[in-house]
Nucleic acid binder design. Structure first.
Lengths: 246, 246
DNA sequence: GGCCTGCATTGATCTGGATCAAGTTGCAGG
DNA sequence: CCTGCAACTTGATCCAGATCAATGCAGGCC
């Protein structure tokens, strides 16, 4: 899936100062001395695509940050109905300080590399490190905003709007990573399978597939491959998403 | 709606030490000296049912805690579609430190009394008061859990399950307030209108009403008045909610 | 008491998305 | 190159919940 030569870097797990997500992760507001402590505590670990990182209800031994790849938070009902309740990208934090367990599975969508800390040690550090705690609060508030935005999508948007909204988010995210605004003729990987997408949007695979086809036929998107989306006109897509004029 | 004689207490806004939600709000982990500062800073304010406390997008001048009543967080689309994204009860916190605006309206569902702080002062205090920050992080994590639970409801549950889930939550909450377990033959007020309920559950008023009637006809609930629910068998309701055997 | 006015219920009909059921496509492994 | 499987697409049908349209019903007010 991803470039094999990068894999070997995981084991090495360079100094925190060189970390690509240094300026966005929980540790982004740490001073040099605090960072040195984290540097000592951290372990890198890679999970293969599809692997479950944390099982719902199991005791959580390690917290950490996504360094590479994409992880999903998945809530499952007894009868098998599933709803994705979060999508984590590099710099996002996994695990909730102060809680023994998680109410949802954390699953690697692609191959995922985590920068992990032993839970107890991290919580101890957190209690004495305001810069960490402050950043974690901000990140949690961001996640809460995202979750609430998603509630609107799940409760009130049509299938077509749901797909368009998801693609809009991916396009924005991709543009940010490339340090550009989302413009015309951009293209990006949509990362997750149709099944995962359906789980995220509260739809079935079939409806998901049909709506993607419909958006393609209407010229809103093009499919370079089944996973790579080309976007002739970002604004058109954003309009399809039923967004407030932002 | 609520007992008029209590109203006059709002103006008085007793000492923090006497506060009924002292042990659950943001300030619950504060020491006496920290509490004394908050005591100085706080203002009580009452909003009538239906009144908007904060408008989406407007600059937020004050943060605070719900002392009495029930407030809703409401996201509205351009074309008028609405989704409630949060329901706040006494001890819940309103406002997000570090953010100028809120992406949703905060509306009083019943008459609401708030214990408010001027935003800038509160943020300054927060930066120097780990006990406040820690508690706020925990509360935010709780809200995030609740939001994710709601995502499952919105994305995957049937109308009947949605109603049953909501009533289950209310029943649990009510039992906690009475310091008892949710048992047989309890009864409680369902607080919000059919319209607000529909907005919360991602349904229409009509479907909401029909499903409540259906649950009544099936003997799962009884209606003392249109708003007061009697519950012959809590477990039966919980089963209808499609909950994991907890 | 009668009469608004705003909530809530109930009924008839319509429809978006689910469900059931085949096909495709595309890639890994022999 | 074939073969087998997993991911995806497409088609036909069904149904839960939306929509449109009355009708009930209780509290406030003249």
């Amino acid at each position: 899936m991803s470039i094999p030569s990068l894999l070997s870097q995981d084991a090495r797990a360079g100094r925190c100062g060189d970390c690509p997500i240094r300026h966005r992760a929980v540790c982004s507001q740490c001073e040099a001395d605090e960072l040195a402590i984290l540097d000592q505590m951290k372990t890198y670990r890679t999970f293969t695509a599809g692997e479950t990182i944390i099982w719902a209800g199991d005791p959580v031994a390690r917290l950490g940050t996504v360094v590479k790849g994409c992880a999903t938070l998945l809530r499952t009902m007894e009868d098998g109905r599933r709803q994705m309740v979060g999508l984590l990208f590099p710099s996002d934090f996994i695990g909730r300080p102060g809680r023994e367990t998680t109410p949802y599975d954390v699953v690697a969508a692609t191959e995922v590399t985590l920068c992990q800390f032993e839970r107890q040690s991290f919580e101890d550090l957190l209690a004495n490190t305001p810069s960490l705690e402050r950043r974690l609060l901000q990140m949690t508030l961001d996640e809460l905003d995202a979750a609430r935005e998603w509630m609107l999508l799940l409760g009130r948007k049509s299938a077509r709007e749901k797909i368009a909204s998801f693609l809009t988010i991916l396009a924005r995210r991709d543009a940010v990573l490339r340090k550009s605004a989302p413009g015309p003729d951009m293209s990006f990987d949509m990362i997750i399978s149709r099944e995962a997408l359906a789980d995220y949007l509260g739809l079935t695979i079939e409806t998901t597939s049909r709506q993607i086809t419909a958006l393609k036929n209407d010229g809103v998107i093009r499919l370079a491959t089944k996973r790579i989306i080309e976007l002739p006109d970002f604004e058109r897509l954003a309009a399809e998403a039923g967004e407030d004029a932002a």
